[in-house]
Simulated scan of single mutants.
Amino acid sequence: MDLNDKHWRTWTLRFLALLAADLPEQQAWLGERRLTVQTAVEEVEFACSIAEGLTGRAVFTPGHLHTLRAVARRTGALDATARTARWADSLAADPAWDDVRSLARGFLHTLPDDRPLPLPLPRPLGPMPGDC
């Protein structure tokens, strides 16, 4: 696996670790940031496009890609009103996130045992424009 593939594999796995984390961990990671559900949906779509390329290079399996696409379908089904909500608030209020959490956990549990589970969450985000 080349360095670039390793970087994107790590990015994808850490993002999935965030999606798979228990609700309190997710909310703590998001903190007071005003990231919207739309941001999460876009990140899921980005993870899918990364996984497609990595699957073509045998970094992920077709089964992994199938699971990521299921996550994308679930988040993609959120209506426009839900997408404007604050992601941290939506995690507790919308049952779609329970489905996403379960799918992400399933993805992580199909990985070879080269990494302990649970995976560490991504580094906390820095301040974003518009954050309070």
Rank of each mutant, 00 (worst) to 15 (best):
E52A: 07
Q26M: 14
P124A: 06
D79Q: 07
R33G: 13
T81F: 08
A88N: 05
S102I: 02
R123A: 12
L30T: 00
G56D: 13
L54Y: 03
G126W: 01
L117W: 08
L117V: 08
G106I: 05
L108F: 03
L108Y: 08
G63W: 01
Q26T: 10
A51Y: 01
A20S: 14
E32T: 04
L117K: 09
L30P: 04
Q38I: 06
T12V: 14
A20T: 10
R57V: 01
V59K: 03
T36W: 08
L125P: 05
L78E: 09
A80Q: 11
R34V: 07
H7C: 00
A17M: 02
A17S: 15
T55I: 02
R74T: 15
F60L: 02
A21M: 12
A104Q: 13
G56Y: 06
R57D: 07
Q38V: 04
F46N: 15
A93M: 12
L111W: 03
W87F: 13
P112D: 06
L54K: 08
A47L: 10
R83E: 15
T84K: 02
F46R: 15
G53C: 01
G126F: 12
E43M: 15
V59Q: 14
D131G: 09
W87I: 06
P95K: 07
F46K: 15
V100F: 09
P112W: 02
V100R: 07
L16S: 05
P24M: 11
V71M: 04
A28H: 10
L13C: 13
D5W: 10
R34F: 01
D79P: 08
V100A: 07
P24Q: 03
R57M: 03
A93T: 14
M128W: 12
T10P: 10
L65I: 06
E43D: 15
W8L: 14
D98I: 06
P116G: 01
T55L: 05
W29N: 10
W8A: 13
E45W: 05
G63V: 03
W97R: 03
L78C: 03
G56P: 01
E45G: 15
A77C: 11
W87M: 07
P122M: 00
V44N: 06
N4Q: 09
R9I: 02
A92G: 12
R73V: 04
R115S: 11
L111V: 04
M1V: 03
I50W: 04
M1H: 01
L111Y: 10
D79A: 06
E25M: 01
P112S: 06
E43F: 06
S102H: 10
V100N: 00
R105T: 11
L16T: 00
D22E: 09
V59E: 15
E42G: 13
I50Y: 07
